[in-house]
């Protein structure tokens, strides 16, 4: 049971209020028709499964119904940061390994 800070409600809430929507920052190709089957297949189906930092899309389903991003360590389940749609993560794999 994660404890997740909703950046819209500005407080921590229990995981049961949220839905996870998978990998974050999967932008829909601007011109899908220009994508090859392979490119479209990658957009549709291929996802990262890192050991360590992962950027995920979550929605505060039982709360404000807003989507936001979470950077989570898939080993320790630690949430490193939450940030808004459209923002970039400040905690990324390279910055951690550089520490």
């Amino acid at each position: 049971m994660l404890h997740i800070y909703c950046p819209h409600c500005c407080e921590y809430r229990e995981e049961e209020e949220f839905h996870v929507k998978g990998q974050a920052h999967l932008a829909r190709p601007l011109d899908p028709e220009a994508c090859s089957d392979k490119e479209w297949g990658e957009y549709l189906y291929f996802r990262k499964n890192p050991r360590g930092l992962h950027h995920e899309l979550w929605v505060h389903a039982a709360g404000c119904r807003k989507f936001f991003n979470v950077t989570r360590d898939t080993v320790s389940y630690e949430i490193k940061e939450v940030y808004l749609i459209g923002e970039k993560p400040s905690v990324v794999a390279a910055s951690v390994s550089a520490k």
């Binding site: 839905h19 829909r28 929605v59 389903a61 807003k66 989507f67 749609i85």
Partner: peptide
């Protein structure tokens, strides 16, 4: 409903 919001909020 969640799907509509997903596309609206993220795309």
């Amino acid at each position: 409903y969640e799907w509509l919001e997903l596309y609206h909020q993220t795309e």
